[in-house]
Design a binder for these strands. Structure first.
Lengths: 346, 346
DNA sequence: TGGACCGATTGTAACGTTACACAGCTAAGG
DNA sequence: CCTTAGCTGTGTAACGTTACAATCGGTCCA
């Protein structure tokens, strides 16, 4: 069931059928109707998308590479905000949106190679990800969110180091035994509690920059980073953060400040503190990251940023014409609330 | 830059190049390396996805049609749960995931016709959506979540009518002046407050069935449905529900029970009651729908269902072999908490 | 009445890949 | 030593569409 079939049935040429579907205004009203009726009669399903994309050279689809198990992307509210921002642009430009999951396995590059897309947005990934090469090779417009930077690819990333230093300072001020609650340090997502973590050893650049910022904040307050426990979680949800915080804070551990890499994690810490009867902020200061809806309600000191706008920015940078690889450093700000000790009036 | 080019460079035939990328195990180790090196040297980006899909007849991609502005899909936690369920299956089967937004406009059918996908899952849509025809026409395996039912397409939907009757009964028991907080009744998303709404007039089948169930619950308790105000919201978030509830409950309105179509909406009602100093459940009974994480914390009586499992089910039914159109009615249950008056012990 | 012009339609030639069937060659088995 | 089987590599022929340039009647104006 192809265009020539429909053409025969309608008594026109194949090209007329093609135009009827692809640029209807180019075909006379009467002819158009005749063609559509013939198509209807034969049950012609419309132009084959593969053939069309082969011939036209474009797919009208934007690809989003998620450096995460696809499932996590929908569990993480920040990731969905980011996707929401991207989708705004897709709707504007009449584009489809294809999600390309990347798991760290060997087929990743193949998936990226084979995805039928015209441009690519990469959600935070590791530094030497072969997927980056695969994208570069295809020569599609592409942008990385969060990092790593790569020549030939755009980059949209806030200054995580500076922001972490700001929020870390808010968390650690007046503390003697601070701790950090971190995203996974590697794709294996191994949970651990470690001291003396070298920030530079983290392969995810967002995580690396934040650790660096926290370390600088500690140093700036005269605290020794080498003694700061970094609690690394496998999953980044509230329940797991709560469990980890119970272990971390239990039994006179002395920990009196926790800087967490997301609001969700920080809320888990707050709940643990509540269960342990630890007073916030006098006995324990807590900070989050993102300033999602729950942060305000909980009085959480945190970093405000708009993942939604960042998603929009990423999408525009690859979809709109004149998309030379962009470098953008979106805004962020420290939001001080009641989960930290009042510090110097900055 | 095509396969013949690479073939020439590597001194082999085009077919060998094709096999090297598509079925590497069919090619001798040494040859494979030679081909890959040649490809590298020429900067060959890998097989053209369009050409491949044209020839192979499949795209290794699952399409999800969202009967919503794409942006809403990511704002609605239940929708993201549903997508998370679908994505589990995609990862399992090594499939990509393409989102196809549908806005009610005339290009909708075209978008569906042209999407490069092997199967389709439709997220709740209206009854006589031309998109359904477009999907049927393409002859792809397809399933509708929530409805409407359509021969040739699968259907995964809980018994919304029965569930609404159960939760409506919990909400309205002991009430004299109940009200309903509803999703939009049409694609235009017009907000309104109406009495005597004919449930059958709602074009979204989920909404229709729930209204029917609420009406039956009212009737079962001797309450006159024609007098029950149905508050229709444009957007389905907590803030808007709160605003609507403030209007609905203010100034001695007498409204003493509200059945809301989602937890988010119900939470808005609870907040409004709190601000107005109305006691729950003695002066006002409130019910939600979905039993999301916030419902338990708020003591909300609600309908529990797993959108995630439903997403998984939908995806499996179209992706796994032997996918005759499925009819499935996933489980749900009424969760009684403290936002409703104690009723008969069921 | 001739020419210019315009809209509608058409034929041809790719677009880049892979299924299929077959040919060579080597190794194992009788 | 001949047969069989298994592994690699190859030529041919689509897959279904659309860009491009050309054609064909008309209509309009000078």
């Amino acid at each position: 069931m192809t265009m020539p079939d429909v053409a025969r049935e309608a008594g026109v040429s194949a090209m007329t059928v093609s135009y009827t579907f692809g640029r209807p205004e180019r075909v006379a009203e009467a002819t158009r109707r005749r063609v559509l009726e013939a198509a209807e009669r034969l049950g012609y399903p419309g132009p084959h998308p593969g053939a069309r994309s082969l011939r036209r050279g474009r797919t009208a689809t934007l690809g989003v590479v998620l450096g995460e198990h696809l499932t996590y992307a929908f569990d993480d509210p920040q990731a969905t905000q980011f996707l929401a921002g991207i989708s705004t642009v897709c709707v504007e430009h009449e584009l489809g949106l294809t999600l390309i999951p990347v798991t760290g396995g060997p087929q990743d590059a193949a998936r990226v190679r084979e995805a039928a897309v015209d441009a690519v947005v990469l959600w935070t990934t590791v530094d030497h990800d072969p997927v980056l090469d695969a994208v570069l090779r295809r020569g599609l417009p592409a942008v990385v969110h969060g990092g790593p930077a790569r020549s030939g690819l755009g980059l949209v990333a806030i200054d995580d180091r500076a922001a972490a230093m700001a929020v870390g300072t808010a968390a650690f001020t007046g503390a003697r035994a601070p701790a950090v609650l971190s995203f996974p340090l590697d794709r294996a997502r191994r949970p651990a509690v470690r001291q003396g973590v070298d920030p530079d050893s983290a392969p995810f650049s967002v995580t690396r920059h934040r650790l660096r910022g926290y370390a600088e904040a500690a140093a700036g307050l005269g605290l020794e980073w080498g003694r700061v426990p970094v609690v690394v979680l496998a999953r980044t949800d509230r329940a797991e953060a709560e469990a980890a915080a119970l272990r971390l804070l239990g039994e006179g551990s002395g920990v009196d400040a926790v800087a967490a890499m997301s609001d969700e994690l920080a809320l888990g810490v707050l709940r643990a503190a509540d269960r342990l009867g630890i007073a916030v902020p006098s006995e324990l200061a807590v900070t989050g990251w993102d300033d999602g809806p729950a942060a305000a309600a909980a009085g959480l000191t945190t970093i405000a940023q708009s993942l939604r706008e960042q998603g929009e920015l990423c999408a525009r940078s690859v979809v709109e014409p004149g998309s030379a690889p962009t470098r953008a450093s979106p805004p962020w700000r420290l939001v001080r609330r009641t989960s930290t000790r009042p510090g110097h009036p900055a």
